[in-house]
């Protein structure tokens, strides 16, 4: 069983996607052998207000129980606490995703404190999208810096009661953060290098490594194939592919009644 923690749905001005509807995305992930996925709305990244994109996403995912909704929140917008409350009435939300680089704030900004308190109370993970594209290949007038390693480490240390999932970190970045911040988890989508995943597992506990493909920005098959390293035991593979995230999402998954067998 595989639960993909890094999937998005929507339109992106710089890339065309085959999986551009909930039905196409669900069918694609099923073909790739993925049982469930945490999905957020791409349109919410560049929108002034992510709310309408979130709502469209939640409505679209209702018919697809394997696609688990994640809300995009911009903590600079004062109404986010109300929105998050409303979302809970529409659809069980499995996490909150933030895009500090795209929304123009740092993790040290004062707005992050109340958000982290709320997530801790609601037992929801915070998902930090470190980057969306290779820093060298971004659209020339849309160059966004990734969220910094030191910034994430310091932030995670200030919020030890929160579970923080970092998406699209390189192997080196992930190892650096996870060695110091025990409440940080990282997905494998951007981890690379000849022996990338096995080397990471030699440096940090496999309990905090998560399967994430960054679909549809990247080919899902690449993440699938990274789990084929022979150095990864069946037990560790099970943790990365589903065990670790199941533990984080226990409350959400039971609320959704998702069959992951």
């Amino acid at each position: 069983m595989i639960i993909d923690v890094n999937v998005s749905l929507g339109r992106w001005p710089f890339q065309e996607f085959e999986q551009d509807t909930p039905s196409k995305l669900a069918a694609h992930l099923e073909r790739e052998g993925i049982s469930a996925a945490l999905v957020s709305c791409i349109d919410s990244i560049l929108a002034r207000d992510p709310d309408s994109g979130n709502r469209r996403l939640f409505a679209g995912l209702k018919k697809h129980p394997s696609l688990l909704p994640v809300a995009v929140i911009n903590p600079l917008l004062a109404d986010w606490p109300d929105r998050l409350g409303e979302y809970a009435g529409i659809s069980p939300v499995c996490g909150v995703k933030i895009y500090p680089g795209y929304h123009g704030y740092g993790l040290g900004s004062k707005e992050m404190g109340p958000l982290m308190k709320r997530l801790e109370d609601d037992v929801l993970p915070l998902m930090i999208q470190s980057r969306i594209e290779d820093d060298r290949s971004q659209f020339p007038s849309m160059m966004v810096k990734p969220v910094g390693v030191d910034e994430i480490s310091a932030f995670a240390s200030r919020h030890p009661g929160n579970k923080i999932i970092c998406l699209c970190l390189s192997r080196g970045e992930a190892a650096g953060i996870m060695k110091t911040a025990r409440n940080v988890y990282a997905d494998i989508s951007y981890m690379d290098g000849l022996n990338g995943i096995p080397e990471l597992l030699g440096e940090v506990s496999s309990d905090r490594v998560l399967f994430g493909s960054h679909t549809p920005f990247l080919y899902t098959a690449s993440a699938r194939m990274k789990m084929m390293y022979r150095e990864i035991s069946a037990q560790v593979r099970g943790r990365i592919e589903s065990g670790n995230i199941s533990g984080i999402l226990e409350a959400c998954l039971s609320g959704l009644n998702v069959n992951l067998d």
Binding site: D192, G193, L194, G196, Y219, S222, R224, K226
Partner: peptide
């Protein structure tokens, strides 16, 4: 610099 699975995945996928 890159892994075989990440680069093969773009062909297989």
């Amino acid at each position: 610099c890159r892994s075989f699975p990440s680069q093969l995945g773009r062909i297989y996928g």
